[in-house]
Write a protein that binds this DNA or RNA. Sequence first.
DNA 1: CACACGTGGCA
DNA 2: TTGCCAAGTGT
Length: 338
Amino acid sequence: MRDDRSEALRDWYGRQARALPWRIPPGSDAMPDPYRIWLSEVMLQQTTVAAVKAYFATFTTTWPTVHDLAAADDAAVMAAWAGLGYYARARNLLKCARAVVADHDGVFPRTEADLLTLHGIGPYTAAAIAAIAFQSRAVVVDGNVERVMTRLGAIETPLPGAKPEIRALADTLTPDTRPGDHAQAVMDLGATICTPKSPACVLCPLRDHCDGRKAGIAESLPRKAPKIPKPERRGYVYVARRGAQCLLETRPAKGLLGGMLAFPTSDWSDTPIPAAPFDARWKDAGEVRHTFTHFHLTLRVLTTTQGGNPDRGEWAPLDPKALPTVFAKAWRQAFPDT
DNA sequence: CACACGTGGCA
DNA sequence: TTGCCAAGTGT
């Protein structure tokens, strides 16, 4: 706390902290609920605050404690996560909740090392939970911290090579008192002031300490390797409706959209091979486009209202909200009225 | 270490 | 319209 930069950051956070559903106000002596901190941190992995809010409300209402979540049906949790993306997080969320109940008496472990043993908790999340939920002096490094630290220290080493330098600087800035507030202060700064593009340096509590700003290179940091263009893939998706039911399948537990509810599809490739789940007069309903992390996809949507004996999946009532976004798009393309 | 893994918003 | 990006983890 001797550090001028940490003090400036703490004071700024005291004034400008965002009010978030999982957050206690800066300086508060209230005890955060580790379950809610954990849940919010997992949801926030590579995901914006705006996208997380509604899901956090649904999850904490439906499953208020880690015991409730551990006892939930897999399908219910996957359906509730639908649309948020990175579905391995939902699968790991259940594994983690069940391990906390089975192996830790329903109480989240307090140390980074113990937290790290749980599914879906990596170095960032372990440090964040230790700092925010348990007031432990953990050094929290995420994308925001990387951006703020590379600018503050004018670190021009490209990522990921710069990580040791970044961590060392973050360690220097982390105070002994209220390290959880400090971690959230850096992340709020990165989200609202020290943004990827057009940072608002004039409003920054660290502007007089920032070497990147002094050198006029802040906005160009952190340096990163150029992105590889995404390849194009194509496929066929089969949307069959029979009265109130649709033909649905649960995707394999590993891989893309693993464990999620889906319509049957062909393979997705340069030259997909049509693979209707049963013989029928399939009607061409046009195409939908969707972009995943590492490829673009164009799906030709084929529909029928005939019945049939499918070679995979089963007839079941459909809640479109339980589908990953790419299949929700296909559903809307197939049956715009519903 | 490099790559797989979603999505919606914004310039 | 296209590309970039957001509180990363697992393999």
